[in-house]
Write a protein that binds this DNA or RNA. Structure first.
Lengths: 182, 182
DNA sequence: GAGGCTATGCTTAGTCA
DNA sequence: CTGACTAAGCATAGCCT
């Protein structure tokens, strides 16, 4: 499976397969009741897209809104869209563009904050769900080290009392020594 | 062709066909050099997505910008019915919405991580020497809990495991890779 | 939930209109 | 760019682990 070099063949294949994907997508919606959106850029950069039940429904779902109307058939939606006045679409388009831009900037801001906080606060303060298996394993062994560390400390204290000399020992500064997970 | 009524069958079909669509999409990119993005909501409302080369690349292309960083690795983030053809503005409109949704999804993800991180104030990052024996013991058992928690998590993952290796598909939980641990 | 298996039917490449 | 046609190949429903 590799790139089709002949230009005409490539275009034909693109068109046919695009239709094929649209069909698969619609079948998924009818069979499973899923909502599907597809965006495709042709090799020449032309944009195509498909969505069911409608773009609005899918975007509303993203925006946690209640769909204003959800009983429309796809055909009806297509007709409705065709009937929409050009300037109305353009207006919405521009509005969306603005929203998209601010949303994108917000995302960037959050991401930067995220990274900075991670630097400040340390590697352990991360939601477990978002970690890969390897990262989780590393975290596990790191905590094991800390755990052992604390155990030693407790043992020392209860044996020799408060005689700790090194003043600024932090629990979390243990060195990483990846152990095998049982 | 109609909705599958049996719930189990419907879920299985959904999962298989989703993979099928992802495959078709990736084939389209390799055969024709197209860029494809797919967003799917399962019948239960769970979001899935697929994109090649990446969501960012596609949205940047749409915004006529030069991609800030173009890693060709396939990423996960994000189909159909009889073919319907839309005019160029409608298509652009849809694409913008799709990209907007993806961006929103990403923002939401980051925000959730942010909140979760805010909740926990890093209570363990305290000099051990400054703790009383009692506090130290509490800390010890807390770390034991975390430790056990991680162990459970690891066991669950390695048993029922998310198919974490194939990076092309993801279940909408997170695409964010945390920084590497020390 | 994931993956293997098989018969069936659908999709596709190639070609022409 | 779309439609039709055919042979070959692929996806999938259903069933099982």
């Amino acid at each position: 499976m590799k790139r089709i070099e002949n230009e005409d063949d490539r275009h034909i294949t693109f068109s046919k397969r695009k239709s094929g994907i649209y069909k698969k997508a619609s079948e998924l919606t009818t069979l499973c009741g899923a909502e599907v959106g597809v965006v495709i850029f042709s090799p020449s950069g032309k944009p195509f897209s498909f969505a069911h039940p409608s773009i609005d429904s899918i975007s509303n779902r993203f925006l946690n809104r209640i769909p204003p109307e959800n009983n429309d058939t796809t055909q009806a939606l297509v007709e409705a869209h065709k009937k929409m006045r050009l300037d109305a679409i353009k207006e919405q388009h521009n509005e969306l563009l603005n929203d998209f831009e601010s949303e994108k900037e917000r995302g960037k801001r959050l991401e930067i904050m995220d990274k900075e906080r991670r630097k400040e606060k340390g590697w352990w303060d991360v939601p477990i769900e978002s970690l890969s298996l390897e990262e989780l394993q590393q975290m596990y062994s790191s905590f094991q080290d800390i755990h052992d560390n604390l155990a030693n400390h407790l043992r020392m204290r209860s044996t020799f009392g408060e005689s700790s000399s090194s003043s600024m020992f932090h629990a979390g500064t243990s060195t990483q020594q990846p152990d095998q997970f049982p």
